[in-house]
């Protein structure tokens, strides 16, 4: 068990805060240090011939920011924009990248030691993008492996 955990997530310790949000039926968490902002820039301009995981670009205060389709990346179909859809902007090695989520939830405080490895029956694609699982009172929080998500497919 421990070995699997270490393979999935590098050894982390101490406390951590997650920004949590819903994509499809999943409650996902992203480490708060990755997240630059959450906004309503969901009116995405599509870019023809771009990779399938790219939804398009938005204007973020004068900067043209790429927006990824988190649903597609996680193998949950294509993005559907609704009134609660939000754009989570993260910093990926100097470049800002946004991805659309269905709904923003709370910020969750946790300790790295409480984060469990993803269940073994989680199939390949999703497993790659998840760093671990954290048990909340009312359900499970899947912690995103930001590096993998930002790397695209």
């Amino acid at each position: 068990m421990n070995a699997t955990l270490e393979a999935a997530a590098p050894v982390r310790s101490g406390d951590v805060e997650f920004v949590t949000f819903c994509v499809g039926d999943l409650l996902l968490g992203a480490e708060i240090c990755h997240v630059e902002e959450i906004n309503r820039h969901v009116d995405v301009t599509p870019v023809a011939h771009s990779p399938e995981w790219v939804l398009g670009v938005v204007n973020l205060r004068g900067e043209v920011v790429t927006v990824l389709d988190l649903r597609w990346i996680l193998g949950l179909g294509n993005n559907v924009t609704t009134a609660t859809t939000r754009n989570v902007v993260v910093n990926a090695g100097g470049e800002r990248i946004g991805f659309l989520v269905d709904r923003i939830a709370d910020v969750v405080n946790a300790s790295w030691s409480d984060i469990k490895a993803p269940p073994a029956n989680l199939n390949g694609a999703q497993g790659r993008f998840l760093q671990g699982i954290y048990e909340l009172d009312h359900g499970l929080l899947a912690v995103l492996n930001m590096e993998e998500v930002l790397a695209g497919n």
């Binding site: 301009t45 870019v47 023809a48 011939h49 938005v58 043209v64």
Partner: peptide
């Protein structure tokens, strides 16, 4: 002229993007 992100580096149809007067992005 604003550059496109590295995810779009293979989109040879576009030389970049710009922001129009209404705040929308145009390629």
């Amino acid at each position: 002229v604003k550059p496109l992100g590295k995810n779009m580096k293979d989109c040879r149809c576009f030389a970049g993007a710009t922001i129009l007067g209404d705040g929308q992005v145009a390629l």
